[in-house]
Design a protein around this nucleic acid. Structure first.
Lengths: 174, 174
DNA sequence: GCTAGCATGTAAACGGTTACATGATTAG
DNA sequence: CTAATCATGTAACCGTTTACATGCTAGC
């Protein structure tokens, strides 16, 4: 999942690995820390795939900085990832957030709106966490305190997100 | 991450793999589908580790059912996972939800409350997604529509979750 | 006769975690 | 002089995804 974030941040400006790490940390480091063991191999993969270019900066510091920037293929790839996100990127809130963080890179408002609409459809699909006798347990019927909390929180967040999505989609179709 | 859910569901009653899959699907299948390629190896690991027992049911169906149940070690393990969740289980909303789904298995209310308090502390730690000149960008100052949405949604969900946590912790200390 | 659901598995590839490893610069 | 920060990487391990593979039963 690093791929999208790396391409997204590099689209804004060239960065070296350490700075990239700082941005990634800012984006969702409090939720999931970024490890060097994930980041550097990911960069290497992207370079090998021709999506990222690196030029080594002759600096005074210990390990020489590798300044990374997107190639044309990298920019194309970023757009493809934003335009046709996999289902998991729509359904998983955390991944969808990553998508949102870079969605402004999509050039067409209609394309941006289409992504938001996919999330809307997902949120409107009724879903339930628990079943008793094959039927979904309603929040009011759930006797367990913690599962009650899950249902309550899920509903509240769904409500707010739906409200925002509706507004944003409306704004995009002006 | 399957480990906790499998142990949690088996704690409630013995199940065979297919039924387990159905429960797991109910719990968060709409967000992340459960794949056989993850489930069956996970079961095998748990059996090998002595946490789960299986007895094959002589049935008429094609592949014979393996009915799975927790061993004493499995029950102990489940409690340990619930009692001392790793940081990632507290910070990642999705994982925390999984924790909540089975937290009722912890015998002591004080222990349950302690887990909720860890989440509370995390949510009270100020965090921001984006930085400009090293300083966090406030929601009102964020010019990008989509990043605005992220901030708005994150705040709303945080608010609701904090409210519930406070209530639940209070209820547990009666 | 066919499709959907029941029921279980394997194997390759991939990506991420954890731990290890190095070394320079800067501030206290 | 020592700790924190800058800066980059490797290697073993682990769990998940994806694709493949099998075969029975029930209902249309």
């Amino acid at each position: 999942m690093l791929e999208l974030s790396i391409l997204g941040f590099l689209r804004e400006q060239p960065l070296h690995g350490y700075e990239l790490k700082a941005r990634l940390h800012g984006l969702n480091g409090h939720i999931r820390p970024v490890s060097d063991g994930a980041l550097y191999p990911a960069i290497t993969r992207l370079v090998r795939a021709g999506l990222v270019e690196q030029r080594t900066e002759p600096g005074s510091s210990a390990a020489p900085r590798r300044v990374l920037s997107l190639t044309e293929a990298g920019r194309t790839r970023l757009l493809a990832l934003l335009r046709e996100p996999k289902d998991a990127e729509i359904t998983d809130g955390q991944r969808f957030f990553t998508l949102l963080a870079f969605l402004h890179h999509l050039p067409e408002r209609a394309e941006q709106a289409a992504v938001l609409r996919r999330r809307q459809v997902f949120l409107d699909t009724p879903a339930s966490f628990f079943y008793r006798d094959g039927k979904p347990v309603r929040a009011e019927e759930e006797p367990d305190l913690f599962r009650q909390g899950m249902l309550r929180i899920a509903r509240a967040t769904g409500r707010e997100e739906k409200a925002w999505l509706a507004e944003a989609i409306a704004a995009l179709s002006d």
